[in-house]
Amino acid sequence: MKKRIIIGLILVFLLILLIMAVQSVSQPRAGASLKGGDKIGVIDVSGTITGTSTTSLLTGTTNSARDIMAIIRQAASRPDIKAVVLRVDSPGGTSVASQEIGMELDKLRATGKPVVTSMGDVCASGGYWIACSTDHIMANPATLTGSIGVIMELQNVQGLYEKIGVQSIVIKSGEHKDMGSPFRELTAAEQQLLQGIVNDSYQQFIDQVVKGREGKITREQLLPLADGRIFTGAQAKELGLVDSLGDYYDAVDQARVMAGMSGEAPIEVLNQQDMWKRLFTSLDSVLGGNQPQARLYY
């Protein structure tokens, strides 16, 4: 009887730990609850920034603007998150998705929590847009950044369709309703209209950089650089496009200092999803979540 009680207690102890372990793995922050205290939240932004979910089953991070915005809001509302490190490894994405993330970052900073960007391999275009909505930008010397500009790409498959005998019939309410259609040439007027959209979007990008880099680079200094060219992190530092050079842990330290935290504050990756959510989001992406459309890209 005594034997059974002893081994029973040991097994119950192990079972409790296993249940807690399952919780820790499925919701990384739950397991750390006993540790308590203030933390630095890390938000991973990897790959193309889009409006629709593009969760990677393997890496477990999502770049859907909606999901990232929700995580930024979570960081803003959680009292234990004292600072945020935005780890960006992205060549950019759609203009609206980048703008939306940037706006939420501005709101997060308005709560008084410092936000530091840590640039990975690439933090260009839309990636740089969102970095401009953070308090401090840290790049690796070899990071590729910049690419300040806007691009809109359209395809014309008219010739191909003619070869295979497919004719497109369009019934439209106005002259420009099928502007950008892949089944016909773009007219000069349409080209002018689209150029106007691209130019306006480009001005918004310039405004964002000037606002985000106030006191570090002027509009006049920025304009010659903002022709879509890319820079290394070291070059960007010289030009005032980033604040300092360092790796991910340096960025964490910077966030810690800016938040006035002492000692070794624990880090929590905020956008690490549990297995099931990741699986279903991935399936959703595969089964039609991403429909090709004409979009503006930063």
Binding site: S26, V42, D44, L57, L58, G60, Y249, I267, M275, R278
Partner: peptide, 10 residues
Amino acid sequence: TGLGLLPASL
């Protein structure tokens, strides 16, 4: 830190 953490599915 999380960056080196193995995703749950993997």
